[in-house]
Amino acid sequence: MDFIVNILALGIPFSVALLLASIGEMFNQRSGIFNLGCEGIMAMGAFIGMLIPYSVGQGGATAEIYNFLGIIAGALVGALLGLVFGVVVITFKAKQGIAGIGMQLFCVGAAGTLFRHFVGGTQSIPGIGKFYIPLLSKIPILGQIFFSHNILVYIAFLFVPLSVYILFKTPWGLRVRAVGTYPRAADSLGINVNRVRFQALAVGGALAGLAGAYLSLCQAKMFSDEMIAGRGFIAVALVYFGHWDPIKIMWGALLFSLAQSFQLAVQGQGINFPYEFAVMLPYVLVILTLAFSRDKKKQEPAALGIAFDREKRT
């Protein structure tokens, strides 16, 4: 029983960075833009998130304030980078795929360079500790699985219903979906397509930056320029996995992370099985699910990847 409880209790915090980044990417894609630079924005968010508590608030009573300032700064930098990406693909109408790869390379490189300049070598920080929810964390089994994590875990999972509400119950969510599905029709109704897309990119970037800051402040409690290690690309894949639906994306992030937690636990049991296959397990699981779970009712946003030009008839 402990074996299963441990897998579940660890799988949930492991999923948070993926969940935040993939929900952010969902907003991007819902507006018609895919941002392969997600990985890079996460790297910058991780660096900025770590830099603030490292440089101004090492330890002491005020440490927590600086940690949360780091979280906010990570999200703000992410939003800013989302807007920069918007200038490239919306204003200058660059190809989104290539621009995203460029964004990823630039941000990872910039984060590493800035890190070396401002911090130096690998450094750890106190980071954000666990927050045990009173009473609930004392419930046997469930308390350990659901209510004994750091505060960002709870916030990340609150983003799921919040994004469902924003996307499907608010006028802005409707506009985001409209510009990602049929931008010309949205434009004819007076919606400023490019402005909505910029807004969605800012939201997506902020969540990717937040995901990065989570990794450096809550999970690793340190920074290195290779620490994102492909998680940004997995987040993009999870958007397809979840058919652009926040709840399904959450299940995808949990599936990946629980598989990760499971393979780590199994490796430790000394089962005679090549560890390389165990390490591959989460990735294989996501690919298989992507391949076999095609929901014909849930098509990708029709205008995904297509730049909008109101002077052109498309």
Binding site: A9, M227, G270, V279
Partner: peptide, 27 residues
């Protein structure tokens, strides 16, 4: 002795995950 590999020389996060998994398992 519980042995687990991250498959990477530089993935600090995954190494942290392995350690947490092992500590939870009683190491």
């Amino acid at each position: 002795v519980m042995v687990a590999h991250t498959g990477s020389f530089s993935d600090y996060i995954k190494a942290g995950e392995v350690a947490q998994s092992q500590i939870k398992a009683g190491v």
